[in-house]
Amino acid sequence: MELFINLFLFFMLVVTALAILKMRHLFAVVMLSGVFSLLCALLFVTLDAVDVAFTEAAVGAGISTVLMLGTMALTSRNEKMPRKFSLMPLLVVMATGAVLIYGTLDMPNFGSAKSPAQTHVAAQYLALTPTDMGFPNVVTAILASYRGYDTLGEVVVVFTAAVGVLILIGGLARRRHKDEEEAN
């Protein structure tokens, strides 16, 4: 049953991706990419990575959809037909995919107790968190203390991205607004 669920979800993922490629109506593409994110989230849930799944659903299906709709309000609703069919992007994607699959070859099996994630620092974190921090939540201890600088870096990256998007979209909207007022 688990195999069937995984196969079905991957099948739906491929179908959705092909549909996104084929669609020229950009609103449908936005909705389909939301569905794509939800399917990814479901796959993460079946892998027991519920936190990753939730981030994927919130960012992919929630914020990205809203951002893309906001962008669509500033640009066109329909995708232009490509002038010619080019083979290069397909080749690049295939090569990247092949490299990624090659990279998974020597990874430990899913759920393996001998994987580096289980054998190196994880045991230490589990043992030391109660005495180091004084509270039982190991995930919080790792994120906020053991890997505090890492988290700080992530926060900076997310903040920079948010500022960049706001400048891009906000600036464009303001310019449009000014143009309209001048035209009136």
């Binding site: 939301g34 939730f54 659903a57």
Partner: peptide, 28 residues
Amino acid sequence: FLDIALLYALINFVGTIAVLKYFRYRAI
């Protein structure tokens, strides 16, 4: 993970409202 499903329901609701608001007002 049953309570996580609740959060998904919330995201779904807010997302739909955002999309519909975009239709009505052309802005989020």
